[in-house]
Write a protein that binds this DNA or RNA. Structure first.
Lengths: 145, 145
DNA sequence: CCAATATACATAGCATGCTATTCAAATAAG
DNA sequence: CTTATTTGAATAGCATGCTATGTATATTGG
């Protein structure tokens, strides 16, 4: 038995996520970036000078997770925090020039990892996969959020 | 913009995997089980009295990861280890009666989580999703393994 | 204005996973 | 038979993520 494993969406999705995370780590590691920082970087490349609370609303992780990620990004010279004149509880988060300079290369490398993972799928299957995943996420978020 | 996020298979798969892991944690937590133990339990329910090395070949995680998981399972009273008469470097891993007794309920709960995640998909889409995921895993494993 | 509540972050503690390293025992090479 | 290599496990160190708490600052209700 235990074809459970090969028939279980949870098992497969978990395994796939780990493989893709490893591939991304390999790809962007040379830039000094890691997979967990990517969602935050996407948000900050789009617009920086925001508070942690604003980023939490955009990045799909818990506040405590983001707080740790930001601490590592600060340690790694990717972000800088300045006092928020409007609210002394929070600080505004800015990308360093170094982190800004990495945007194009990092996006290209991440896109390359996606392409590599999807290499065996044809043009119709790729959007289908994205749509199925998005629908499953929607289903699971109902009620939680 | 950065619709990168919503178009990225890596991002979606990672998010989905975390949601499914959380759902599984909620489902089997009351049995005293956790998601990371599930693959090992599947292997041991099928046949126990095996070495760690044999389990590593069946479970898709690294040896060091499995070693830690087994330590927690031993702590939690799920497994027991006995000397291996054929090789004193290893020990044979057995499920406790308690862990054996949980098989049916745990499998049903895990299947329920999968069903819940797939609830919005129709009968054709489910096997398609499983097949797409399996193919992506195959693609990414090439060369590594 | 002041107490009660809400909000923004930080931290602790834990589970999963990975890579790299170490140690001991088993095997292979000579 | 020794030495060299391989194999089985354990451990250290780190990244991600989660839940639960704590702390300080804002905001609200009286």
């Amino acid at each position: 038995m235990s074809h459970f494993k090969d028939q279980s969406s949870g098992y497969l999705v978990n395994h796939l996520a780990r493989l893709m995370e490893q591939a991304l780590a390999e790809a962007i590691g040379p830039l000094g970036l890691s997979p967990g920082q990517f969602p935050t970087l996407l948000a900050l490349w789009e617009r920086d000078g925001r508070t942690q609370a604003e980023l939490v609303r955009e990045v799909d992780v818990e506040q405590a997770t983001l707080a740790l990620t930001l601490k590592r990004m600060e340690r790694d010279g990717l972000i800088q925090r300045k006092p928020n004149p409007d609210d002394s509880r929070s600080r505004l988060i800015y990308l360093t020039p170094h982190a800004k300079a990495l945007e194009e290369r990092a996006l290209a490398l991440a896109a390359g990892v996606n392409d590599q993972a999807l290499a065996d799928l044809d043009d119709k299957e790729v959007p289908h996969l994205l749509s199925l995943a998005a629908r499953m996420i929607q289903t699971l978020r109902k009620g939680t959020d």
